[in-house]
Design a protein around this nucleic acid. Structure first.
Lengths: 264, 264
DNA sequence: ATGGTACTCC
DNA sequence: GGAGTACCAT
């Protein structure tokens, strides 16, 4: 028996928003420690990794590990039926082929139950090593969101260049070129507004904006986002989910990492 | 001569919103008592019945009964030209083939007139008997709206089950099953938020959500909606129009009213 | 209440 | 493929 209850449906809704454009089906792997999900996007370019630890839940019970194969669109539809401050309970029998969502309104006058069929999904459970990166940039999530959106109107690729002084995002295309520079400002009062750079050496990598724009669907989940970069290794874009875990996205850099590239 | 004036164009706009998706042409039957309209929807499945008593108007005059055959889309277009708090006057000559809409802005600084051609419409004026029902459920109109919208994502049919304790709405489909339960809570302070059940005996009937979703276009007209049900008879969905009358929708239950039905 | 998006019909 | 319509989200 698996059963987990969270006080605010809003959280799960936001998680789905952050996943649904990238992934059609995924296994939600539930253990006594919590829920995790790993999936490649449908074009096998990027990877999403979600962790929700059991302490992020009001109530959490998982008698034995269970993998819930879920169609994300169906789950999204169901979660749309919850109000943001409904309590949500997920329940699955060990040998069952369904999961049941229960929504309870704050005033207890309304209870909704949605039963969803589970799927069999080949899970490519990729062990992703936690590694040190050459450079990390922590910045306001909404700032990153805006930068990716804006640069998309210029070109398809963004070049991210990190120095001790700051981070620079550049895109170019037919209409011209756009560059956005954020200064390292870890001294700003509000932590959520800080731009904090940690690095061993300067570095410059290019990424497909199309995927970054999918990643920024997680903006509602966290005030800050952290970009972790190492030459020739995938970028990691991490949003911490308060008290609960994180959602991380992985995206390999474009190989043509030079300024002369003009065929975006 | 027929002439009627209402202080707020908003009311007539909302009435049109509540009718236009269901009915293309309809006779507005005007008598000294007021205006009424009855029409089947275009697929002859459901029925709309509108009543606006003369006391709902600022000014009302109807020398002899007259039936105004109106294309609802045309009238909607014309009413879109009125501001919500314009006063509206409808005027038709006894032997004429047009109706004139006059909009006067609140500050009297602007007057608009639109003349619309009338149509000849075969009116199937169905005498609908007022009858006692086995069960009625009064609930917040917005709640009913949300339930119909949410369950539409699950299946095409909703089963409505009424007991003394509450009312339950259930739909099922390929992706699973959804159930929403509202407790009878007539003791809630705000009358508009109450769920009030009146019943002779428990009952469970199924309806096509497609039509219920057309009916909920009337949500803006009233805080509450009342569902009246009797086995094998059409459901009546009633929105009271404050001080004026009502709009009622009728929809026959689906015949397969059992839980084993799986071909929604 | 209004604007954007997504769907459906033509 | 385009326009109109309906729905959702802000």
């Amino acid at each position: 028996m698996f059963e987990a209850r969270m006080a605010q449906a809003a959280l799960l809704k936001k998680v789905l928003e952050a996943v649904k454009d990238l992934v059609t089906d995924a296994n939600w792997d539930c253990t006594s420690a919590g829920i995790s999900l790993q999936a490649m996007d449908s074009s096998h370019v990027s990877l999403v990794s979600l962790l929700m630890r059991k302490d992020g839940f009001d109530m959490y019970r998982c008698d034995r590990p269970i993998s819930l194969g879920i169609n994300i669109a169906s789950m999204t539809k169901i979660m749309k039926c919850a109000n943001n401050n409904d309590a949500v309970t997920l329940r699955a029998e060990d040998e069952g082929d369904t999961v049941v969502f229960t929504f309870e309104s704050a005033d207890q006058e309304k209870v909704s139950e949605f039963e969803m069929k589970l799927m069999d999904i080949d899970s490519e459970h990729l062990g992703i090593p936690e590694r040190e990166h050459t450079a990390t940039v922590k910045m306001p999530a909404s700032e990153f969101h805006g930068i990716c959106r804006d640069l998309s109107t210029i070109g398809e690729t963004v070049q991210v260049s990190v120095t001790k002084e700051g981070v620079q995002f550049t895109a170019s295309g037919d209409t011209g070129k756009g560059t956005i520079t954020l200064r390292n400002n870890s001294s700003v009062d509000e932590e959520s507004q800080q731009v904090v750079i940690t690095m061993q050496e300067e570095l410059s990598l290019s990424f497909a904006l199309r995927y970054l724009n999918f990643f920024t669907k997680a903006t509602a989940l966290a005030d800050s986002v952290t970009l972790s970069m190492t030459a020739d290794l995938p970028l990691v874009v991490e949003y911490r989910i308060e008290d609960t875990g994180y959602i991380r996205y992985f995206l390999a850099p474009k190989i043509d990492d030079d300024d002369d590239e003009d065929n975006n």
